[in-house]
């Protein structure tokens, strides 16, 4: 059975189409990534799943319930972590957890047991009495995740949970997500970070409300037709200017110690050799494996 099944979903705000014909399926114990730039429709999609937004076309089925008319059942069974930190800054860690447990009518004994588990899982126990407002960014996110998990939901929806969180805390946060997955919980998560996208089992790439790609990260990368080359030189600037006269500006990206060149076809060794003749400072030109970000940016064009 699917934890989440969306078919031909379209959401409009007045005349603006925020989402258009989105399909996706989430199986149990899966991390599903929603990837896209600002304004792609990620938050709209997540809010529709949480029954927070009405949709005009298509269907959403969450844990076997139709989102159009069974909002109450769905809301009781999912956990949602909105984009902005939405806990009470002036309540302690413990009080926040208790408040959310009460909202979801978790009885006291179950709450205590669940809280123990969550403390262990998030390592927040030493900070139980600290006000949420005084936690570091990474700890706030862990608390928000714990609050979303207090009623033991089968599916959690996370909207850019690591936005603005520092890289070390991001790694820790994702470790928690993998742990949840191992416990059988399904996760739908949106993210602007491409390295996080690579950690999902399945992703959908959104651009201007439309799906431009779907599948496992490996599938998406291997399905991409194009080549990426890394070029180095003792004088990168000059090399960049040299390449500008031979390739499109959009296909070039200057980094601190290398230049990436995108090409539709494989570069012949003759071509590379001729470049080396014309520009002797060119040290190397090797094909490299594209990352999620390279592929994603190409697909958007």
């Amino acid at each position: 059975m699917n934890v989440l099944k969306i078919q031909e979903l379209s959401v409009r705000y007045g005349p603006v189409e925020a989402l258009s014909k989105v399909d996706l399926e989430v199986q149990p114990a899966m991390v599903y990534g929603i990837i896209g730039p600002d304004g792609a429709g990620k938050t709209t999609l997540l809010r529709s799943i949480c029954t927070l937004l009405p949709y005009q076309e298509g269907s959403i089925e969450v844990l076997g319930y139709d989102a159009a008319n069974r909002a109450k059942e769905i809301r009781a069974r999912i956990g949602y972590m909105p984009q902005r930190f939405s806990l009470y800054q002036d309540l302690s860690v413990q009080q926040n957890l208790r408040f959310f447990a009460r909202l979801f009518k978790v009885n006291h004994a179950d709450m205590l047991k669940r809280r123990e588990q969550l403390y262990k899982f998030s390592r927040l126990e030493p900070f139980a009495k600290r006000l949420a407002g005084n936690l570091s960014g990474g700890m706030k996110q862990k608390l928000a995740l714990s609050c979303a998990l207090i009623h033991t939901p089968g599916l959690i929806i996370l909207d850019e949970p690591t936005f603005g969180v520092d890289p070390v805390s991001r790694v820790e946060f994702w470790q928690l997500l993998h742990q949840l997955k191992a416990d059988g919980i399904s996760i739908v998560v949106s993210t602007p970070y491409m390295d996080e996208a690579s950690q999902c089992d399945q992703v959908v790439l959104l651009h201007k409300g439309r799906m431009i790609g779907q599948g496992s990260p490996a599938e998406i990368i291997s399905g991409w037709k194009g080549k990426l080359y890394s070029l180095t030189s003792s004088d990168l600037r000059k090399l960049y200017e040299f390449l500008l006269s031979r390739a499109n500006k959009e296909d070039l990206q200057l980094f601190g110690s290398e230049i990436h060149l995108f090409s539709e076809q494989e570069l012949s060794s003759d071509k590379i050799a001729s470049w080396q003749r014309e520009f002797p400072a060119l040290e190397s030109c090797v094909e490299i494996k594209p990352g999620m970000e390279d592929v994603f940016l190409r697909m958007m064009q």
Binding site: D38, G164, L254
Partner: peptide
């Protein structure tokens, strides 16, 4: 580049 999407980030770095 916090809060800016990948495309804009690349242009910014250019």
């Amino acid at each position: 580049t916090s809060g800016v999407d990948p495309q804009a980030r690349r242009e910014f770095w250019q």
